[in-house]
Design a binder for these strands. Structure first.
Lengths: 231, 231
DNA sequence: TTACATACCGACGGTCGGTCGGTAATCAAG
DNA sequence: CTTGATTACCGACCGACCGTCGGTATGTAA
């Protein structure tokens, strides 16, 4: 009765299952991703599955972790390499993180699409929380240093960081729209959308930071041209 | 075999079930609130239950609706009754909504406690979304009018409204802490916490609105004294 | 070859949300 | 007071689901 299946190393099997789970998650809300479905798609038995994962939620957690952890080090790296005054460092941070995000835009858009799906509210929150947890410390020190140097004049450091992150959060939705538009032939329209959005964020960022002298700059829309012309 | 139960009017039974559900939800995450548990606590059979509700989620929706809908009209009312310049109207709006919230603080704190529980992420989002959906239109017009009158100088109306709501959102967490502290005997400490928070929010609100002349004012901490001395 | 570790199997158990045929209380009409 | 329709209510039952468990097959090291 037993059907023979391939035997993999634990790691390979794990990633194989995670791949399948990610794939399924990109088309179904998590509650519809049955373990049975997962088993069939991954070509493994229930026992085999539970040999590698303790529960269905364990899979979700692993999927989310894999989707986010690559970005962890990026922001920190940029910060550690940055030089100059607070404004320059903040600008460098913005450029660095944005560039990194653009390089991984497909993955990020995928994650966002998943998180935005109805029924995936818990995923959405977990993801946002995780992203925040990772970015907050660096941003806190950046802002605090700026305040100490007299370059920024903020209402409150924590509140400012929180609002900055919130202000930037919707960018990817705009990016998605812009990409759609340019994919539909209206490249100029897409670029304009992007430009306006970045300009808005730049002004809001400067207002929140209360820059006393030089202004923080967001990356120019030109940097996004590659992004607007997908594969 | 049949156990005799009381026969209620449809409405009474519905509210009875909703009461029980709210009660249970205040101590368990929603997924742990089994239909069976609900039935036992409400003293009704499964058939009876499904005679009044189409699904378990139907109950949740009704509970949330009942918890939020009372607040719907409040903000709108305050706005419609307000007079004077944009700054005065905005201040009146803040005072009005805050006062209303304080009058219903117990209920609101209850809702927040529920929404903040692990496993209730979907509830949290639904609630926030609903609150936003209700408050945004009024705030939009308030800000837009202020811009038109030249009293506000805003980066972008929608973004500003969004950030304002976000900035105010954490207030209830601080309120909860303040109440705890004053309940523990440190009335002064509680009041100070509140005062600082409100001062912070006031400064942030003014910065976001970019008030050109007069400043918008948050309610004074004195108004919260009743809140700090609970039943 | 033996002994052990581990990748894997699938029948099974228990729980859950939801259905359905039936019963009894209520009420309006004759 | 009947009679008939409506509706609140009952609980056995269903299928889908997640997770367990005893057991098998494949590798690896002594």
């Amino acid at each position: 009765m037993n059907i023979k299946r391939s035997r993999m190393s634990a790691e390979d099997r794990r990633t194989a299952i995670l791949d399948v789970a990610t794939e399924l998650l990109s088309t179904h809300p998590w509650e519809e991703v049955t373990v049975a479905l997962l088993l069939e798609a991954a070509g493994i038995s229930k026992g085999g599955f539970y040999h590698h994962f303790t529960s269905k939620d364990d899979v979700l957690e692993a999927v989310l972790l894999r989707l986010t952890d690559a970005s962890t080090a990026a922001g920190q790296d940029v910060y550690e390499r940055s030089e100059g005054g607070a404004v320059a460092r903040f600008t460098a941070y913005l450029e660095g993180t944005t560039r990194w995000e653009l390089r991984h835009s497909d993955k990020i858009m995928g994650v966002i699409r998943i998180a935005m799906m109805e029924g995936n509210e818990a995923i959405f929150l977990k993801l946002e929380q995780e992203a925040r947890r990772r970015a907050t410390p660096v941003m806190r020190t950046l802002v605090a240093e700026g305040v100490r140097e007299g370059a920024f004049d903020v209402v409150d450091i924590d509140m400012t960081v929180d609002l900055l992150q919130h202000a930037w959060r919707m960018r990817w939705v705009v990016l998605a729209h812009a990409r759609e538009r340019s994919a539909a032939g209206d490249l100029f329209g897409g670029e304009t959308m992007l430009q306006e959005r970045l300009h808005l964020e730049e002004r809001m960022t400067n207002r929140l930071l209360g820059c006393t002298g030089a202004q923080v700059r967001m990356p120019r829309a030109g940097e996004f041209m590659d992004f607007l012309r997908p594969v």
